[in-house]
């Protein structure tokens, strides 16, 4: 058992190495990709700024707080992209029948899919989110205690697991339906964009949905309440403590679903 784990990890790092090398092969494309992503997110932040220029606040949140909320979500999303983003089009392997290859290799299929790509382009998002968070931190004059740094760390790790779990869940659907990428674009992407804004601006049903069913609220909104010291919202501030456990539980459930799907999998091959 231990040995197979070790061997799996060895294969994993080998494949990741290859993936990074292929991405670094085209230097120009590599740099453009990173810059492109950083700019896309900067664009969204600028749009928020323009929007709040005449209005000043949105339900008591000012621009820098909004930027913090946004930056926090992008930070965990960028880590999630590195490991899990390619799960969204895992269905292509199933449709083309190339998924069968993964089953006969000396590494667990899940780890194999994770290792398919180590998306270096995500450094663009990472760059943006770190810069955004630092600017927001300075502008808001925050001064976190040690415990708040722990909450922040928990939010990043937990947020990565929640969003990664969601991607794993969606890709798992493909074991039954053979197609699932559309689910990502119609279900997860809008839900993610929703979280760029304070949750309290949305109807109650949606607030409950992203808290208890698809726990996106734990990615950025709930921890941000604690980290920004916003106590007058309709959510009690202690909710933000739970991001890490929620992330671990949610990811475990999603992984379980994926494995059930894998056992159910019948090749699409001819």
């Amino acid at each position: 058992m231990f040995e197979s784990c070790l061997r799996g990890l060895k294969f994993y790092f080998y494949m990741v190495g290859v993936s990074i090398k292929t991405q670094l092969q085209y230097r120009y494309a590599f740099v453009m990709n990173i810059l492109g992503w950083a700019m896309t997110y900067a664009g969204t932040a600028i749009t928020m700024w323009v929007m709040l220029y005449s209005f000043q606040t949105i339900r008591g949140w000012m621009f820098w707080e909004l930027l913090f909320l946004f930056g926090l979500s992008v930070l965990s999303w960028s880590i999630c992209i590195i490991f899990f983003f390619h799960f969204r089009n895992m269905d292509e392997y199933i449709v083309e029948g190339t998924f069968d290859r993964f089953l006969v290799r000396p590494i667990h299929p899940f780890l194999h899919v994770v290792a398919l790509k180590f998306d270096v382009g995500a450094f663009g998002q990472l760059l943006f989110s770190i810069v955004a968070l630092i600017i927001a931190y300075v502008q808001l004059g925050l001064n976190w205690q040690f415990s708040q740094w722990l909450i922040f760390l928990g939010a990043v790790i937990g947020g990565t697991l929640i969003q990664g779990g969601m991607l794993v869940l969606i890709s798992g659907v493909a074991f039954w339906t053979t197609r699932s990428e559309r689910l990502f674009w119609t279900l997860m992407w809008p839900a993610k964009n929703l979280m760029n804004y304070p949750l309290t601006i949305f109807p109650r049903v949606i607030q409950l949905l992203v808290t208890f069913v698809l726990p996106f609220a734990f990615v950025n909104f709930l921890p941000a309440l604690l980290l920004l010291g916003k106590t007058k919202e309709s959510f009690a501030p202690y909710w933000g403590f739970f991001t890490l456990p929620v992330g671990i539980i949610f990811f475990t459930i999603c992984l379980k679903f994926w494995t059930i799907g894998l056992n159910h999998y019948k090749s699409a091959g001819s």
Binding site: L35, T40, S54
Partner: peptide, 29 residues
């Protein structure tokens, strides 16, 4: 250009912001 990455993002951003698709020009500085 084989890779239009960065330029493409500026292009899309310009369209979405300056076309007033979601924020009308009235509210711009």
């Amino acid at each position: 250009l084989v890779e239009t990455g960065g330029v493409e993002d500026i292009f899309y951003f310009s369209i979405s912001l300056f076309s007033g698709s979601v924020v009308p020009l009235w509210f711009f500085p």
